[in-house]
């Protein structure tokens, strides 16, 4: 096995759900070392559930998740926490918690009751805050931050954990476009500088295409397509997965696929020359 193609996370026959309710059925997946993978799909397709299982936050009903070839559920959770960092979709924090304290919690797997703030901890937290540009906000409380800053603070916590695998569940939710780009640039930077492997769930298809090496498209708990963005993000796939009529054109900046949805307002003009119905 070559280093370039090393599988970090593997899902084997993964079936996931909550009680009777199956969300993901018999899924297989390989995540290659040093890649950025984006999982896309309509609401409720099981992307977040898959991410939770990959990060051992959810126990599979069937199948396994392997981390570096070992079953993740047989590995002590603390050891996993030194390899995999997870940022859930809507993390909560107590009122009045400062950014510095939040990010320092990321060091939990490296600490013990007598060793709660070592020089290594301080260095890692400082480095994480510096990378996200949040060092100057260390003494602010979370409620004093904007949405984008808060998201950066949470990402800093995941970074301080010092893992080379990062699972991010919709890291750009609730952010305006500029801040979405900021966060994804940061992800890119983590990948480029430290060779981190990133798996993230994203809603914005165009950003997903731009910022990932691999796209995974899911529908109804199954993987419909996976591969390089230009191979996955086709007009046919958008119709199959999202029931969306769209044109796919090359992104004028990056050359990656750019999804241009058609929608009912313009379908008439696109489909035929028939005059629009004024009484509509």
């Amino acid at each position: 096995m070559t280093a370039a193609a090393r599988v970090r996370l593997r899902a084997e026959g993964l079936s996931l759900g909550y009680g009777e309710n199956r969300v993901v059925e018999g899924l297989d997946l390989d995540v290659i070392d040093g890649t950025i993978t984006a999982v896309i799909g309509p609401n409720g397709c099981g992307k977040s559930t898959l991410l939770r299982a990959l990060g051992r936050l959810l126990a599979p009903q069937e199948g396994h998740v392997l981390l570096d070839g070992k079953r993740i559920d047989k590995t002590p959770t603390r050891e996993v926490a030194k390899i995999v960092g997870v940022l859930p979709q809507t993390p909560v924090a107590p009122d009045g918690l400062t950014v510095g304290d939040l990010v320092a919690r990321g060091r939990h797997p490296h600490q013990a009751w007598y060793r709660q703030w070592s020089a290594d901890d301080e260095g890692a937290v400082s480095e994480a805050l510096r990378m996200t540009g949040m060092l100057e906000f260390a003494e602010r409380t979370l409620d004093q931050l904007s949405g984008g800053q808060r998201q950066r603070a949470w990402i800093s916590m995941a970074l301080a954990q010092g893992t080379d695998l990062l699972l991010l569940d919709e890291p750009t939710t609730y952010l305006d476009l500029a801040h979405q780009v900021d966060v994804l640039d940061l992800v890119q930077q983590l990948h480029d500088q430290a060779g981190r492997t990133v798996i993230m769930v994203l809603h914005d298809l165009n950003l997903a295409a731009r910022y990932s090496d691999r796209l995974i498209a899911m529908r109804d708990g199954k993987i419909v397509a996976q591969g390089a963005p230009q191979d996955v993000l086709t007009e046919q796939l958008l119709s199959d997965v999202f029931d969306l009529d769209a044109r796919v054109v090359p992104d004028p900046v990056a050359g990656t696929p750019l999804v241009v949805p058609i929608g009912s307002r313009h379908r008439v003009r696109v489909d035929s020359a028939a005059p629009a119905d004024d009484t509509m």
Binding site: E79, V86, L87, P88, P94
Partner: peptide, 13 residues
């Protein structure tokens, strides 16, 4: 304090 998923991610049982 951060909710179950974040806590599990930090290696807390």
């Amino acid at each position: 304090q951060f909710g179950d998923d974040t806590a599990r991610g930090l290696g807390i049982r």
